Amino acid sequence: MASAFELTRNMTIGQYIPTDSAVHRFDPRFKLVAFGVLVLAIAFCNTYVGNLFALAFCLALFPLIRIPVGYGVSGIKPAVPFIIIIALLQFFFSGSIAPGGTLHFEYGVIRITGDSIRLVIVSAMRFVEVIFLSSVLTFSTSTTDLTRGMECLLSPLEKVKFPVHAFALVLTIAIRFVPTFAMEMEKLMKAQASRGAEFGSGEWWRIIRRTKDMFPLIIPLFNLALTRAEDLILAMESRGYVPGEERSVYTRYRSKGADWGLLGISLALAAVILWLP
């Protein structure tokens, strides 16, 4: 019962923890590129061995950034219902049979094939690996560095009048608001439970009931989100922020040999993930 109210403890994406590891000191531009390369490799990897290798590598990243593996793995818990729903849809309704494939069960529109079973397992592993990589990226990169790194990488788009700074800022704020929303949801759940509402009393697999229990929290959560957004706007305006105007930067990023080494390692790992049979 108590674990149902501990949302922030299991929300790893969007948290920045300054452990001063070697990964923290990498150039954020290279970290973003390495992250993109690995995510693309995972997205195109269709093999069990390749995904197992990627999963093992993602788990090894947590000790590297001085974060307990248990805390990093806890980030999967909020995503478990989505993984189950997606897996069930793929398991029962992905009915295509490749040449030489096997049909295990068929009833109406429901078809269970060897390809659907492999798709479910591989998709779940991909989902988990992307969550781990996203957690590692936000654990080791501050909000300012994420915004500046993304802005530097997208700067060529300014030639076609694309609002690079605004896009990078909005995307970074959205990522950082994830743990904020989890904290507000936790407060709402505790307030409702103190008034007699039932949260977390049902079994974990009763997804529909647990979803219905969350409906009374949606409107208050949106209200709190708008309040937080208004506070953020006032804070930015009080500091002289004007959208669209050119701004100076305090930190100038300069690439080092270690940054290029990080990029080379990520490319090599992506090649290995895609090459493994």
Rank of each mutant, 00 (worst) to 15 (best):
R29Q: 06
K212W: 13
P18W: 13
I208K: 10
S238D: 07
P216G: 12
R209L: 11
V249L: 09
P78G: 04
K31N: 01
L267E: 02
K161R: 15
A87T: 14
P81D: 01
F35P: 04
I86W: 05
V178N: 00
A225R: 09
M189C: 03
A79L: 05
A43N: 10
G75T: 00
F57M: 13
I83R: 03
E129H: 06
I207V: 09
P163I: 07
L40K: 05
T251G: 01
A168L: 10
L88M: 13
M150E: 01
S255A: 13
A229C: 13
H104Y: 15
S94F: 14
D115Y: 12
M183S: 07
L137W: 04
I97Y: 05
K31R: 04
G244K: 08
E129K: 02
R254F: 07
L146G: 03
A34T: 12
I121G: 01
A41M: 09
E198G: 00
G70I: 11
Y48R: 05
C58F: 11
R195H: 00
F105Y: 15
W205M: 08
R118N: 12
R25C: 01
V120N: 03
R29V: 04
K187S: 10
I42Q: 02
L188M: 13
Y48I: 10
F199M: 01
L119D: 02
L32F: 09
A22W: 12
K31V: 10
N51Y: 01
F199T: 02
S94W: 09
E158C: 05
G36V: 13
R247I: 07
V122K: 00
L262R: 03
L61R: 06
L61N: 06
I265D: 02
